[in-house]
């Protein structure tokens, strides 16, 4: 991806917002990135097409999973400045609360970085970061540099 190639050339971390804007599926979900003092936070405003249960209404579990997985991948790219997208090997998602029809946020952290495999944890929350809506643990394979 141009975003990653340019960043690698500059020796800088890739701009997370440019990265997400280059990914069509993230644009479909409306996910954008914010760099805060506390680190990288992904923001997903509510939209009608993200709903999984129209009666509550609640976000689709797969949308929440997608936000978690995107946060995990974005964190690995941003921290490790990889030349290519890391590839998810496995993920486990715990659904803790219903995802309401409001803006959702996600943050990830690298729990363990190996030479080829990274263990990542991520959480999604809405109004209160202390009350997560869902949590992810997963492994990502780092592609070998060309």
């Amino acid at each position: 991806m141009d975003v990653l190639t340019r960043a690698l050339k500059d020796g800088a971390s890739p701009d997370p917002q440019s990265l997400l804007a280059a990914i069509p599926y993230c644009r479909h979900l409306g996910i954008r990135a914010e760099l805060r003092e506390s680190g990288l936070v992904l923001v997903m405003p509510f939209a009608d097409h993200l709903v999984g249960n129209v009666f509550l209404p609640a976000l689709h579990g797969g949308v929440i999973g997608s936000l978690l997985e995107t946060a995990a991948v974005a964190q690995v790219i941003w921290e490790l400045r990889g030349p290519r997208l890391p590839r998810p090997v496995d993920i486990t998602i715990d659904y803790l609360r219903s995802g309401r029809a409001v803006t959702s946020y996600a943050r990830a952290r690298i729990a363990k970085q190996g030479r080829r495999v990274v263990n990542v944890h991520a959480e999604v929350w809405q109004d209160d970061e202390a009350k997560p809506v869902a949590a992810l643990r997963g492994h990502m394979l780092l592609p070998a540099a060309d």
Binding site: Y25, G61, G62, S66, E69
Partner: peptide
């Protein structure tokens, strides 16, 4: 395809 789309489909 984004892994999240596969996740969504399998959840559904």
């Amino acid at each position: 395809v984004h892994g999240g789309a596969v996740t969504a489909l399998l959840d559904q």
